[in-house]
Design a protein around this nucleic acid. Structure first.
Lengths: 129, 129
DNA sequence: GTAGAACCTGACATCAATGTCAGCTGCAAG
DNA sequence: CTTGCAGCTGACATTGATGTCAGGTTCTAC
C-alpha cells in the first residue's frame, strides 16, 4: 500500500511515517518512480511504534528494539544485544514508575472532579485506589 | 526557605522553580532585596507539580487546578469551574488510556528481555498480562 | 496526453519544559 | 569592607515528534 493509505489506516500522519523511516524504524520498498510501498504488516508496526513513543521510549532505543520483536504475524528476527537488554530493563523500570505516577495523578484529578460535583471526596466515599 | 533549598529538597532545578512561578503555579514572597522566600508547604506543592507534569497535564490546566486541591496540610481553597471539571475529566480519560498503553508496552519490553535471556517468551510461560 | 490528486525532498516552525550564559545585585562570614 | 556564594532577570539553545510550506515529480483516470 502507499503512504497515504497507511496513514489513514493507522491514524498517523504522512509526515510522521516519513520521519519513522528516517529514524530507521519503518522500512519501505520504492516503486520505479520512487514512491514508498508498504506491506500489510506495516500497519501493525506503525501502531506499535506509536505505542512505544507514547510510552516515552526514544527512537534510538526503538530502532534497536523493533527487530527483536516477535511480530503479530509471526516474524521473529534478531535477538537483543547486552546493551539493549540493559537499556530495556531501565526503560521498564521507568515505565513502572510512570504508571505509579499516573495513578497518583489520576486519583487526585478524580478527587477534585468529585468534590466539584458536590459529592464527598474519594477518601470519604471509601473508594479503593 | 530560599530557592536553592527548595530546589535541593524537591530535586527540581532552580530554573524550573522560577518557571513554575512565571506560569502561576507556585507563589513566593520576596525579601526586601527581591529574593524569593518559600513556606514549608511549597515542598509538597512542587512535588505535586512535577507529578502532574510527568502525567502530561499542561501548565495551563494545572494553574487552574492547583487552587482546588485539598493540600496535604489541609488547606482547601477554590472549587472547580465547570470548564475545569470538564477538562479534568478529559485529562482523566487520557491518563487512563496512557496507563493502558504503558502496560502494553511494558509487557512487550518484558517479553524481549525475557527472550534475550534465553528464557521462553512470556506467553509460553503462561504469564498473566 | 492532460488534469488533478498523491507523492517526493528539504527546509523551517512549533510546543513545553528545561539548560545555560551573561551581567548584575543581595547577603552572610571573615 | 571585602570576598564569594547565592539569587535576580532576560535571552537564547535544546530536545523530539510533528506541522507546514515550497517547488517539483509520479500516478491514475479520463
Amino acid at each position: 500500500m502507499r503512504i497515504g493509505d497507511l496513514a489513514q489506516r493507522t491514524g498517523v500522519s504522512v509526515r510522521s511515517l516519513r520521519y519513522y523511516e528516517q529514524q530507521g524504524l519503518l522500512g519501505s520498498t520504492r516503486t520505479a518512480g520512487g514512491q514508498r510501498e508498504y506491506p500489510e504488516a506495516a500497519v501493525d508496526r506503525v501502531i506499535r511504534i506509536q505505542e512505544m513513543f507514547a510510552a516515552g521510549v526514544p527512537s534510538r532505543v526503538l530502532a534497536e528494539l523493533l527487530p527483536c520483536i516477535h511480530d503479530a504475524d509471526g516474524t521473529p528476527n534478531a535477538t537483543a544485544t547486552p546493551w539493549l537488554t540493559e537499556t530495556l530493563t531501565a526503560e521498564r523500570d521507568r515505565i513502572d514508575a510512570a504508571i505509579k505516577d499516573l495513578r497518583r495523578t489520576r486519583a487526585l484529578l478524580d478527587e477534585v472532579i468529585g468534590t466539584a460535583q458536590g459529592a464527598p471526596a474519594a477518601e470519604a466515599r471509601g473508594e479503593r485506589r
